[in-house]
Amino acid sequence: MVNFRRFLHKFYLGLVILFLYAPILVLIVLSFNSSKSRSKWGGFTTKWYSSMFANDTIMLALKDTLLIAVLSALLATVLGTVAAIAINHMRKVPRTIMLGITNIPMLNAEIVTGISLMLLFLALDLNLGFITVLLSHIAFNVPYVILSVMPKLAQTNQSTYEAALDLGATPLKAFFLIVLPDIFPGVISGFLLAFTLSLDDFIITHFTRGATVNTLSTLIYSETRKGIKPEMYALSTLLFTGVLVLLILVNHLGKKSDNKNGKI
């Protein structure tokens, strides 16, 4: 009976995993398909993996996607960490107001956020392009950084910071030597979350990019009607495997160092 139950649990997990990974499997298979049509198998090939580097449109979109993701995550992390520290020191009422406003971009519909930012940029007479996409990405990333840093700040001990000040450290020095190391895991996870969200965003980029700049997502969307270039499958397979390997490595290393420290 217990065994049957365990089997059912494993079976259910397997089914959901199959559901989640089936499309990914399809994309990986398509990246090795020598036929350009996605509904026909034309034999195994790796040519898309070499030709993607020669495809200027894809490479430019990749460059802009990564640049926007890194820059927006970095700037959002700085802005969000400073904001989290400030909010942490606020009295109850301003704190509630600030956290309420912080929630808006996270809970609002992406299409509304995208449209509202587009209207703002056009009202300011800014040309839609790289800068407006970057600003928009920072805007929807900052709240997630704050959300990651706040819990860590709540765990830190205010007295250590004050002790540093009493011992003659400037506030800035005390922050970098005392507070930052304490909240660093939160800062890093905020950065990673922001990076991931920016990398995968389509809707907000769609409204704020104008006609001059393409990210991988907007490029894919513009190709949906006329057919996705097989190089795109190759590139995303490569990116996905890269992340997979990285995660397994981090997981493996993390376990090793955990064992050494005797922590979970």
Partner: peptide, 19 residues
């Protein structure tokens, strides 16, 4: 269960078209 989010979400929806 989070990992699939690392494959571009538009492409994954397009793959459902294929399926």
């Amino acid at each position: 269960f989070i990992m699939p989010m690392w494959m571009n979400s538009l492409l994954r929806i397009i793959a459902w078209q294929n399926i």
